[in-house]
Design a protein around this nucleic acid. Sequence first.
DNA 1: AAAATCTACGAAATCGGTTTCGTGTTAATA
DNA 2: TATTAACACGAAACCGATTTCGTAGATTTT
Lengths: 340, 340
Amino acid sequence: MKQKITIKTIAKELGVSTSTVSKALRDSHEISSDTKEKIQAYANLYNYKPNHLALQLRNQKTKVIGVILPKIVHHFFSTVIMGIEEGANKKGYNIMVCFSNESYKKEVETLKVLSNGSVDGIIVSIANETLKNKDFKHFTDLVAEEIPLVLFDRVVDEILCDKVVVDDVGAGYKATKYLLDNGVKKIALITTPNHVNVGTLRRQGYEKALIENYIKTDPSLIVEIDENQDIKDQIEKVFDKDIDGVFAVNEIYAANSMKIAKERGLNVPNDLSVIGFTDGLISEYSSPTITTMAQHGFTMGKQAVELLIDKIEKESEVYRPKKIVISSDLKLRESTKPSS
Amino acid sequence: MKQKITIKTIAKELGVSTSTVSKALRDSHEISSDTKEKIQAYANLYNYKPNHLALQLRNQKTKVIGVILPKIVHHFFSTVIMGIEEGANKKGYNIMVCFSNESYKKEVETLKVLSNGSVDGIIVSIANETLKNKDFKHFTDLVAEEIPLVLFDRVVDEILCDKVVVDDVGAGYKATKYLLDNGVKKIALITTPNHVNVGTLRRQGYEKALIENYIKTDPSLIVEIDENQDIKDQIEKVFDKDIDGVFAVNEIYAANSMKIAKERGLNVPNDLSVIGFTDGLISEYSSPTITTMAQHGFTMGKQAVELLIDKIEKESEVYRPKKIVISSDLKLRESTKPSS
DNA sequence: AAAATCTACGAAATCGGTTTCGTGTTAATA
DNA sequence: TATTAACACGAAACCGATTTCGTAGATTTT
């Protein structure tokens, strides 16, 4: 890179001290307007830009927010990033994005790198492997160091910090209830293994809606997908159970269910109603289009970053962890019968 | 944030100088093993982490790479990010991700922020508005400042720097040729306005394939989508032209075409063959699944970041801009007839 | 005319590290 | 025994800014 022009260069060229240059550039009243003009003109001419690193070191803040996501090629997470970025920019922050790739080890490493002073605070959605391990030491350490931390979507109670979550129980309930209210009787639940807590919560909502309608939960209607195996094969089995509804905890599972239905000659929504989760492109462009629980990722990201910046900038105040719950709405499309 | 432990703290506590602490922690031979052990033990106990800002300032490098994308909620770009991140991590770099949201103004601002020393180099895919304006001063300034820059996918010749692009002409040619070779006669091209050069290039490939087959390009079969208006409506018209093939320059246009076909009772692929671009989830989960030109975003990201780091780390060498062309492959699915 | 007050600027400390160079002590060599 | 070398460590400069404090000289006040 080209030799950057610094305050020192300007000072030397103009025969003044660095303090004078600094003050002149910040338009201090201590400097005569003559000198100011001269210095500012020179700085402009040579396109002087103050070195951010120096400022960060001096001010002990970076104006950067670290974000660790499990993955990015994913509609929900990329929407969240947009929200985080917009919220951060509005307050003069930039974001440093990293990925755990659902790996515990990478999450630990990334967290270590970010917590060495590169960022003022960190936003994380926990990796699946970590949730499975239940090893959260890297997070509790972070909290102990008092580095501002906000978790979103995939959170756990063990970590004491601000959180932004979807009302997963409510969402599962809403979806299931909608199906029941519209004449669907036998609803399959396509969900994640138990350690992924959002899946568990959505399942609770599903069960709650069933109980309210005096229907006993049938475990054979619940499919816990192992992502290491073929998704479609695993869903396939539940279609032998003569179901007339599917509630899938994400888009991919919903899309796979639709495909199976089509192959089996089932008409969606007449023979089978399908509701997915995450309002992504698949649901929108599938045919028929898929009714989903919209997760409002953008809002989540924005709320998360606002919470974080609040924590960063008002650290003197007494702190009690906040939890923001974002309710998700049913977005009706063609894969369900119209509301009766 | 909690008061961080610094080298100074350790020095004071142990009654040695900061130089000694620094050397001990870096395992210098200058320090006796006695002292080293004592210092290292203390540092470990109190979880000392060297402050990155201080190191960055001293070394005049940040080990951070800036990335500016037009958007993120988009399969291709999120795949590219993955590639960039992986390549960067492998070399000990982190990435700072920003978005232009296709806006010229935001692109200029973001570039300014990143070029103040926060990053060692920048990777950009140019915003649509900028391509339209044809105002690249913010980029040429960057090049003049000798800040390492790599452009990918959406690039222009006016900016002298390393580039990574898809062989768009070749891709357009391959797609069109495949259709022609398999009996499709009248192929509609659903593309972007002319200022988006990737669209233009793909169009050239389309035309090249037609010419080779002695078919005159029919302008009425080419639809330039204005993203501010309803996409489906715009595509609708070309369906009146009795077409039997569609080549769309992205997934969304392809999906919309499929939808129209379905509404008009056209069987895909028997009555109409469809080829899209970007191998995203829509193409994969659409029904029938959509044949696409796979863009290899991950590879592009990785190549781009490797080019950039090379530039950053070997800046002494004589520099001549490199251009890496990544060829894209046709991924055959159900929306086209099998190869004959 | 002496004292007080401004004005305009510079010296030096600071942020948290690294690194060069110098030096006192001890051990090895001539 | 005098000289040299090795060892172990500290002082100080440096990266690029900001900011406090001090002060010379001009101006105003008493």
